[in-house]
Simulated scan of single mutants.
Amino acid sequence: MIFAIEEINNSTELLPGIKLGYHIYDSCASVPATVHVAFQLSNALDPVFYTGNNCSQSGMVMAVVGESASSPSISMSRIIGPFNIPQVSHFATCACLSDKQQYPNFFRTIPSDHFQADALAKLVKHFGWTWIGAVRSDSDYGNNGMASFLDAAHREGICVEYSISFDWNHPRSWIQRVADVIRRSTAMVVVAFTSPGDIRILLKELSLEPFPPRQWIGSEAWVTDPDMLRFSFCAGAIGFGIQKSVIPGLRDFLLDLSPSKVSASPVLTEFWEDAFNCRLGKSETVWLIFNIG
């Protein structure tokens, strides 16, 4: 986000004569945290959004980028929408957000799940799988996405043995129940419209006991997550990923971050340590510069 804003501010073509100020919040994937920030933004409680030169109206929010997930995006849109503050999300895919009567100020740069659900049904039909099971996150993303998929699956002549929802903060007894449904089912194909956090909890529970192999069909939120590779029974999972591309200048921007600048930001520290598989500390500064340079 910082890189993108700096690119815009340094460009003479994108927004000539305009400098973008910003304040970045971490919602921690929490709806209450998102709502708290939305109220802050709509009431302009933050005194400073940009400390650069010639920045006027620093406390007035002109637009919001985010949220990542659908449920927080919905909550935020209901708060800032009446103030006509535009909201642009890069990852909230719930088809419900396409309803301009409810969310007139919401926009996104990723397709609605309506398209993914239809494509997943066609993918299942392509392989001749007509008897499947379905699990979903108990959220706006999972419930709406699965509803769209089931409608599309019905049109393709696909039968569903079970359709069950769960959430990572449900009692373990509920997660165990979902796992048992999968183990005891006769459907050899499982379509999972879930968030990475939810499916990770379910897969951990399934890994505790051996069970017949299943073919997993995943939604875009988790199917390309490398963390899922540690569950061997997920080998061969298929689905649709989000198209990726190389962003010119981003790599140099990241490599040019000094250890002192990184250590001053918890977010950058977390990114640095994950990207370079190291621990950032005073004694490691020289070692980090040597390996990156």
Rank of each mutant, 00 (worst) to 15 (best):
S263N: 09
R172Q: 14
G52P: 04
Q176T: 14
P248I: 15
V61I: 15
R177Q: 05
W287I: 01
F3G: 00
V181W: 03
A147T: 05
R184E: 10
A69D: 10
A221P: 01
I292Q: 02
R108Y: 08
V124T: 09
E67T: 06
F91Q: 10
G21M: 12
L15K: 08
S27N: 14
P111S: 08
S263M: 05
F240H: 06
M188E: 07
H154N: 13
S98P: 03
A29C: 11
V31E: 12
L288T: 10
G281D: 14
P47D: 02
P248A: 15
V124N: 09
I289M: 11
W272D: 07
I24T: 12
A153G: 01
G81K: 03
T51W: 12
F276R: 14
A92Q: 12
G145H: 06
I201K: 14
F240Y: 13
G145W: 03
G249H: 10
V64Q: 00
I24K: 10
I199C: 02
S207H: 00
F290H: 09
G293L: 10
I242Y: 06
S258A: 14
G142E: 08
W222G: 06
G241D: 13
P248D: 01
G66W: 01
S112G: 05
N169W: 05
G249S: 04
V267N: 02
S260C: 03
Y25D: 08
C96M: 10
E156H: 13
L206E: 00
